[in-house]
Simulated assay, not measured.
Amino acid sequence: MTPAPRASQLPSAWDAGWLQMATHCPSPNFGPRPAATDIDLLVLHSISLPPGIYGTGDVQRLFVNQLDWDAHPYFQGIRGLKVSSHFFITRVGTVWQFVSCNDRAWHAGASSWQGRERCNDYSIGIELEGLEGLPFEAAQYAALAQVCQHVEDEYSIRQIAGHEHVAPGRKQDPGSGFVWPQLQQMLNWPRAMFPPGTV
């Protein structure tokens, strides 16, 4: 019988901040994190393009600056926008990655969490395909829990929050359709890691 490989012999889930289980689609929209930054926050978002329409590929095109601004009237309001997220999880649970987690993605904008400004500097952004206020799919929760666990294994994650929590009044995602207790139960992370009142 062949002996089971030791942990040190197992292939890593990561390569220079890229999660190997994800489909990689590198975005030019990123920058370096400040020196000696602890990456300790996960920020959850929701996005769909056009809003409420799923599976178009337009989210991926937005994050790599290839969106056809004239393809839909809604796009006129975001023309020229340059944004990115580390991860994007589709309705069927497919995981895309656009920026190495070692780098700073452009997902949270003007933001603050527990007295610290500029959440992009120290957070990892995960976008869920959806629309705030509407429910998400079981496949998305399963993929999200897997990504969160991999990230927590690799980085010193101490908190998880929604875009609505780090930019209150400006953002509402992932919104009331996201079931925080479900994620907390799947991860079995301490309740203190989640925003107050969500679990």
Results as ranks from 00 to 15, higher is better:
Cys148Ser: 14
Thr56Cys: 10
Ser46Trp: 06
Ser85Trp: 04
Ile47Pro: 03
Ser156Met: 12
Lys171Trp: 01
Ser111Asp: 02
Val83Tyr: 08
Asn102Ser: 09
Val151Ile: 15
Val92Tyr: 10
Ile47Thr: 09
Ile53Cys: 15
Tyr122Thr: 04
Cys148Pro: 13
Gln159Gly: 10
Ile126Tyr: 01
Ile78Val: 14
Asp153Ile: 01
Ile160Leu: 12
Ile47Asp: 02
Ile53Lys: 11
Asn120Asp: 15
Gln60Asp: 12
Glu164Ala: 10
Phe88Asp: 00
Phe88Ile: 03
Leu81Val: 11
Phe136Ala: 10
Trp106His: 06
Gln140Trp: 08
His165Asn: 15
Gly130Val: 08
His107Phe: 08
Ala108Glu: 04
Leu42Thr: 03
Leu44Trp: 03
His107Ile: 00
Ala110Tyr: 12
Glu132Tyr: 13
Asn65Gly: 03
Gln146Asn: 13
Pro51Val: 01
Ser111Trp: 03
Trp106Met: 08
Asp121Arg: 09
Ala167Asp: 00
Asp153Ala: 05
Leu62Tyr: 01
Ser46Lys: 04
His45Arg: 09
His150Ser: 12
Gly57Leu: 08
Leu49Arg: 06
Tyr122Glu: 04
Arg79Lys: 15
Val83Thr: 15
Ile53Gln: 15
Ser84Leu: 05
Phe136Met: 07
Gly169Ala: 07
Phe75Ala: 08
Glu127His: 06
Ile39Arg: 01
Leu81His: 11
Asn102Lys: 12
Phe98Met: 06
Arg61Met: 02
Asp70Pro: 01
Lys82Gly: 08
Phe75Gly: 05
Ile39Asn: 00
Gly169Glu: 05
Glu129Ala: 02
Arg170Ser: 12
Leu131Cys: 08
Asp103Pro: 05
Val43Gln: 00
Val166Ser: 09
Gly162Ser: 08
Lys82Trp: 05
Ile160Glu: 02
Ala143Trp: 00
Ser156Glu: 10
Gly125Met: 11
Pro135Val: 03
Tyr54His: 11
Gln76His: 15
Ala139Thr: 09
Pro73Phe: 06
Ile160Met: 09
Phe75Asn: 05
Ser46Val: 10
Arg170Ala: 14
Ala145Asn: 08
Leu41Phe: 04
Leu144Asp: 02
His45Ile: 07
